[in-house]
Design a protein around this nucleic acid. Structure first.
Lengths: 346, 346
DNA sequence: CAAATTCTGATTTACGTACCTCAGAATTTC
DNA sequence: GAAATTCTGAGGTACGTAAATCAGAATTTG
C-alpha cells in the first residue's frame, strides 16, 4: 500500500498538522521534530498524491497563452489547438486564457507580458519575438515566479523555463539535406543548380535559424548548389506569390525552392501558374490544407512540419509541472520535426 | 464554478445517493426521479471530476503488457519504456505488470492472453502476432470486457480497441519514395538500379506491410528500380550479416538496401566490411544506438523510426480512457513515422 | 392483517491532502 | 509573578465522488 501522511504521522509520532507543515515548508516546527518527520518520509518512501492534493486545494492552473493574430494557416491551427485545450480545461483543472497580439510587434508582446505579470497566473506560454525588451520582461516574470514557456519560436539565453517547439536549425539542415539529395542527378548538372528561398521575415528567429541550417548544409555538402538571395514575403499570400513569380520569371533555371515561412498559399499559386520547362523541386514548412493538397498533387515534394497540437499539449504539461515544481520528462516533451512526403501523409 | 453532485442533488430535489445511482447506473431509482436527475445533469452541464472519483474509488488501473523477449535493440528499448512506466506507476495510479513471451510464437502469446483473461485486469497491451488463434482470444477478452490495445504490431479486423503503432504500409511507401528519389540520378542509370530488401520474417505482419508499401511505390513511381528477392534474417545479427554480405558479393551492382526489420547490427557490420566500388544507399528502420552511429557515419542514409516511449505512453493513456469509458483524442494518439537523416538526429 | 420483502431515497463515512482553528507549553514583558 | 506573546502541536473540516449503511414507504406473502 502506498504510504500516506497518516503513516508518516504515526511513524514519526507527531500529528498530521506537523507532517503537513514539514511537507509544505510552513513554519512552526522545531528542528528535532522536523528531523523525525523527514526521517519517516524518506524511510517510507512517501510521495505526495498530486490528485488528492489538487482536490484539497481545489486548485485550477490559470495559464495565459499569448498568440500572434496572424492569419496564416499554421497560426490559425495553433489558435484552434489552444481553444481545444480551453474546451478540455474543466477536466484538466486548467483555466486558460488566450491573448491575441499583433504579429511581428515586440512592443505589443511586451505590453501583453506586462499585463500578465500584473495578474500573476500559474504560467504563461507565448510565441516569442527575439528582442531585448522581450527578454527583459521575461526576466521580470521569472523574478515574479511565473513559469514561462516559449511556443513555436524560442527566446534563447533568456529565463524561460522551456521551449515547446522544434529545433529550427536542425529543420533547416534537414531541408538542405533533402534538397541536395533530391536535386543530385537529373536537375543538378555539371555546372550546378540554383535554388530560391522564400521566408516570412529575417527578423523572426525561427526563419533565420532555418535559413542558417539550410545554407550550412548546402555549402558544405552540396557546393555546386547556388542559393539566390532570400525572398521575404512577410508570410503574406499576395506578396509571396508576386515574389516567387518574379523570381521564376527572372531565373528560368531555378531547380529548387525552399519555403521556410508561412507564405505557402502564395507560393503554391505562383507554382501552379508557372509554365517553365520543368517543375522546380519544392520543400516547404507546416502541413496545412493547402500544403497537403500541393503535396498530394506533386506541386510540393516534401513538407517539414511541427505538430501544433503536440506543442500546445506539451506546453500545458510543462507549465503544470513547473507550477508544481515537478521535473519534466524531456523525452516526452521534445517536439519532433515531421517529414511528410506524399506517401506518409496522415 | 464547476457544478458538482451536490448542485445536481439540490436542483433535482433529491439526495446525493440518488444522484450517485443515476450517474453510475446503479439500480433503485424510479424512472421519474431518474428523469429529474438527468435533466439537472444536462441543464447544469455537469462533468464528473475524474481525479476526485479515482480518489474516492482509491482506484488503481491494473494493466498487463505482454512483450516478446526479443533481444534486438528496439524490443529492449520497448521493455525499457514499459519499465519506465512501471516506475512512474504510483504517481499515475497504474499497476503495470510485464509478461515476457517467446518471440514469433502465437501459441505462447495465446497462453499469455488466456492467463490475462483469468485475472481480468483493467487493460492489456500486447505486441500482436497475426494469427487466427490470437484473434480468437482477443474476442474472448473483449467479451470479458477487458480493454485491449495492440502495440507496435497490429491485429486488424479483430476486437482490439486501439493500435498504438505506426502505419507500416505508409512507412514502406515512404521508404520506397525516399529510395527512389535518392537513387534518381547518379546511381540510377539508363538501365535501372537494383535494391535489396532485408527483413526479419515475412510471417510478421508489420514486415509484410512495409514490404508491400515499399514495393508498390517502387513499381509505380520508379519502374526502372529492380527489387531482389527478400532476405529473411530473422532479426538475427549473425544471420543478417551473412545474408547481406552474400548478396553484396553476388550482386556487385546493388545500389540500395532497405532494411525493414530489426537486423540492423548485422547489416551494418556487413556494410562496413564490404568494399565495393561505391557504397549502396541504405534505408533502415528504428533509431537505435547502432543505427544512429551508422547514420552519423554515413553508412546509413535514412532511418524511419517509431518512438517506443510514445507508443507505451499512448497505450497507457488509451487503456485508461477505455477503462473509464472515455473517448480518446485521436490526433494525440496517432503514432508518427519519424524520418531521421543525419541532419535532424535528436 | 401482521410479518416479511422489496423499493426508494437519505445519511454517513472514506479516499489523501490542505489548511483553518484551537489548546497547551514555553518564553517574554512589565 | 501575572499577563501577554510566541511556539509547537492537536483536532477538525473541506475538496468532489463513491459506496456502505440506514430508514421509511410500498408491496407482497401467508
Amino acid at each position: 500500500m502506498k504510504p500516506t501522511v497518516h503513516d508518516i504521522a504515526k511513524i514519526a509520532g507527531v500529528s498530521l498538522a506537523t507532517v503537513d507543515r514539514v511537507l509544505n515548508g510552513r513554519p512552526g516546527v522545531r528542528s528535532v521534530t522536523r528531523g523525525k518527520v523527514e526521517d519517516a518520509i524518506t524511510s517510507l518512501g512517501y510521495v505526495r498524491d498530486l490528485a488528492a492534493a489538487n482536490l484539497a486545494k481545489s486548485r485550477t492552473y490559470s495559464f495565459v497563452f499569448i498568440l500572434p493574430a496572424n492569419d496564416n494557416s499554421f497560426m490559425i491551427g495553433l489558435h484552434e489547438e489552444v481553444r481545444g485545450a480551453v474546451a478540455r480545461s474543466s477536466a484538466e483543472r486548467t483555466d486558460i486564457r488566450i491573448v491575441d497580439v499583433p504579429p511581428f510587434d515586440p512592443g505589443a508582446l511586451v505590453a501583453a507580458l506586462e499585463a500578465v505579470l500584473a495578474e500573476k497566473p500559474a504560467g504563461v506560454a507565448f510565441v516569442a519575438i527575439d528582442a531585448p525588451e522581450v527578454r527583459a520582461v521575461a526576466r521580470r516574470l521569472t523574478e515574479a515566479g511565473v513559469p514561462m514557456v516559449t511556443l513555436v519560436s524560442d527566446l534563447p539565453d533568456s529565463s524561460r523555463d522551456h521551449y515547446a517547439g522544434i529545433d529550427n536549425i536542425a529543420a533547416g539542415r534537414t531541408a538542405g539535406s533533402l534538397m541536395g539529395r533530391f536535386l543530385s542527378g537529373p536537375l543538378l548538372g555539371e555546372r550546378g543548380a540554383t535554388v530560391a528561398v522564400l521566408a516570412g521575415s529575417m527578423l523572426v528567429r525561427d526563419h533565420r535559424e532555418r535559413l542558417e541550417g539550410f545554407s550550412t548544409v548546402i555549402a558544405h555538402a552540396y557546393p555546386n548548389v547556388h542559393i539566390l538571395p532570400v525572398l521575404e514575403g512577410r508570410d503574406d499570400p499576395g506578396l509571396s506569390e508576386t515574389m516567387v513569380a518574379e523570381a521564376l520569371r527572372r531565373n528560368a533555371d531555378i531547380a529548387g525552392i525552399y519555403s521556410l515561412g508561412a507564405g505557402n498559399r502564395g507560393l503554391i499559386r505562383a507554382l501552379q501558374k508557372a509554365h517553365g520547362p520543368r517543375r522546380p523541386l519544392v520543400i516547404a514548412h507546416e502541413l496545412t490544407a493547402s500544403t497537403r493538397a500541393a503535396l498530394a498533387d506533386g506541386v510540393i515534394d516534401a513538407v517539414l512540419n511541427q505538430d501544433a497540437g503536440h506543442e500546445v499539449r506539451s506546453a500545458i504539461r510543462v507549465l503544470k509541472a513547473k507550477a508544481d515544481g515537478l521535473p519534466v520528462l524531456a523525452a516526452q516533451e521534445r517536439i519532433r520535426i515531421d517529414i511528410f512526403l506524399k506517401d506518409n501523409l496522415p
